[in-house]
Design a protein around this nucleic acid. Structure first.
Lengths: 97, 97
DNA sequence: ATCGTTAATCGTCGATATACGATAAAATAA
DNA sequence: TTATTTTATCGTATATCGACGATTAACGAT
């Protein structure tokens, strides 16, 4: 049984193009330092940092301090769980029009 | 190549527990009249109607008028497409931590 | 200790989302 | 026609989001 509240939180984290772009970059490159991510997008450092925080709070990425830098990475397990929950939510979709 | 803008729109539609609940109900029951959906949730008719509109605008459900009623249904193709786009966005996730 | 680099947080402003009562519209029933 | 049922929309109030400049904090180098 899917917890709709937590699934909604995860989907909300996915609901902004900038955050999807961050996730795509991380999926392609593996680990990334914050500045690298900032360089890939037309947004200020403050805004990107805010988006990273949202993704981290939703559990979709991890972030750990590495000297003066912050290294971010996709949380593979959470992403897989998210995919399964969406599948489960919709079920078989057989009795649909 | 995934269109992040449109994927974000779809995810935004999934980003509210009430809308997820509506989708789950539709997935379980197949077609539903608006009033049936209202009866399953602790929200006013106006609010549910608004959520249905958001889901419809995002293409996740279809809605057609049936006499004085409105009959809603999951848009199976769109939902499948959504699932594939999310998969594609994350890719293999092999080079992640 | 001071300086430069990197990233997080604060404060703010406009835009958007959410919820609901009230009302309108459209079809059916009496 | 008139009343009833069903749903969409309007108007509104509060809350949250999204963006950014400015500031703070933490680390490394000189």
């Amino acid at each position: 049984m899917v917890n709709l509240e937590s699934l909604a939180v995860a989907c909300k984290a996915l609901s902004h193009p900038a955050r999807l772009a961050i996730l795509r970059t991380l999926a392609q490159r593996g680990a990334c330092v914050c500045g690298e991510i900032v360089d890939t997008m037309p947004l200020s450092q403050a805004t990107v940092s805010q988006h990273l925080k949202i993704l981290k709070n939703a559990g979709l990425i991890t972030g750990e301090i590495d000297g003066p830098r912050s290294c971010y990475c996709i949380n593979v397990e959470q992403v897989r769980t998210l995919g399964k929950e969406i599948e489960q939510l919709f079920g078989s979709l057989d009795n649909c029009c």
